[in-house]
Design a protein around this nucleic acid. Sequence first.
DNA 1: TTCTTTGTTCCGGA
DNA 2: GTCCGGAACAAAGA
Length: 288
Amino acid sequence: MPELPEVEVVKESLKNTIINLIFKKVIINSNNLRYKINKRDLNKIINKKVLSITRRSKYLLINLSNKMTIVIHLGMTGKFFLVNKTNQIKKTSFYYQITKKDEKHNHVIFLLSNNVKLIYNDVRKFGFIKIILSGNIKQNAHFKILGPEPFSKNFNIKYFKNYLINKNRTIKDILMDQRFVSGLGNIYVNEVLFLSNIKPSTNSKKIDDKKIKNIIKNTKQILKKSIKQGGSSIKNFNDSNGKQGHFQQNFRVYGKEGVKCHKGKCKGVIKRSFISNRSTFFCSRCQK
DNA sequence: TTCTTTGTTCCGGA
DNA sequence: GTCCGGAACAAAGA
């Protein structure tokens, strides 16, 4: 669920709150996330300072003063809570209230030098936390296969066109492939193809230069817009201050099966199908 | 009980 | 060897 915009929003909120703080203690409540956390590695972060927080694709990177990096992937439902000593977070209407139900899924708790707790919460436990040497990130198995970031200048028409040579897959499958472009998931790919008037099942061989140009433009635009609105809060996505995003209000097709398409004068209806075993939403009229 | 959700990996067939 | 599509896997809620 958290795709590039959501990870970017979490990164920014953590930047504002934990940079220059020191990890004092780590408590593991359950150690069966996607990968088991190596406790010896976890000890290495104790008394180390947070220098910077960055993002690559859907990975969050917390870079520490001892040249180690905490790599976090949020999986489907991973999120961070930042709470003070008394386990309370701000009680304004804009802030999310941690409930008893949430507490059940607080898997890893990082105690910071200002007595604030950084809590990793993950209902489905598909996320993971790994500690690696900062210098090894590029060679790391998770990172070395990643294609360009959608915002980078390397994600351009020439690259796109070249990648499609000899490919015989649906355009949706290609866009979701992290080796091609990194950071997009099912939700944003559905939205990008809708904006681009392209049917998700179109074979990538039939994607001409004009369509490529359109996809690139719409990808950058939609991601940017979502980041600006705090990401999409479906399935309870929040940033680390518990703030919700609002981009889900801009979904035009995702989760909208049976809803009328409002693009221009199109009076089509949003349909749902499966591509690569994923829910796929599109307007059967204006997406050709 | 079954279905749904996601990113990633694996496997069989072409 | 490579490409592609489908299945499997993780866990939990509805």
